[in-house]
Design a protein around this nucleic acid. Structure first.
Lengths: 137, 137
DNA sequence: ATGCAAATGCAAATTATTTGCATTTAATTA
DNA sequence: TAATTAAATGCAAATAATTTGCATTTGCAT
């Protein structure tokens, strides 16, 4: 979707910082931290403030424009555009390199767990850890 | 296992702070944060320092005495004794009540993902979210 | 009992994130 | 198009969770 539309359709003002964040997330091929977005932004255009990056990501999260697919090193949040696909990640414990897993092992189990627990399941997170081919050498 | 043995068997000195942390984790019926352990500790015996709690949890984690059961989406880590069972959690988004799920939907998929990615999978975390029967009313 | 490495307490540092407030800006309206 | 105004931003300072440096204490092997 056109970046301007993403903003107008969610009732957000079209500002330079927001367009920058959208552009950076769009061209990134992996989830980014607030800090990474902030640094990337400085390269091209007038720097935007780090708190603005955080505030922008907060409101994007609330509007569903971005998601937090996982937490890096247990301390830092990562963000990607919400492509409305269901993805999981497999992360190398040594070098942190990650691969996306396209199929979801969880499909088909939802019903079983719902009938066992009487909960209504709305979503889930699955994170896998291991050693990548390169680190095995 | 006896708490003293947990320490001696892993080559850790048997100290008051470590025994306290073990005792508190053992009697807790849910995962605790460092702060919660610290506060709980003050109730009974001579208070132990919060950094000692953190250092204790770090070394316990390294030795496999405790685990961090949740995929973190907030900012605080939780810890439980490692009972060497494989568990997942289903958490109510409203009241935060959680149930343990004993069977693991992931079994059987490990091989498939390993052959696809060439990673060696060492562990995984699965967290499900939903609405519990009580909150549905 | 003695010696020494390991563990602790305390205060200060760090990291990631959030907040208060004055200023600026985008979008609405006259 | 200019005026208005609520929303967004920048900056500095605050906060929350965790970590670190260092002097002191403690557990355990001798």
């Amino acid at each position: 979707m056109k970046q301007e539309l993403i903003l107008t359709q969610t009732g957000l003002k079209k500002t330079k910082p927001r367009l920058s964040v959208l552009k950076i997330l769009k061209s990134a091929n992996k989830p980014l931290t607030a800090e990474e977005i902030y640094l990337e932004c400085q390269k091209y255009e007038k720097a935007i403030n780090l708190s603005t990056v955080y505030r922008t990501l907060d409101i994007f999260l609330e509007k569903g424009i971005v998601i937090k697919p996982f937490i890096k090193n247990d301390t830092t949040s990562c963000f990607t555009l919400n492509h409305h696909e269901h993805k999981h990640y497999l992360i190398c414990s040594k070098c942190k390199k990650m691969v996306e897993i396209d199929f979801c092992p969880f499909n088909g189990f939802e019903k079983k767990i719902e009938s066992e627990t009487k909960y209504t399941i709305t979503n889930h997170k699955l994170e896998m850890f291991g050693i990548c081919p390169n680190c095995k050498k």
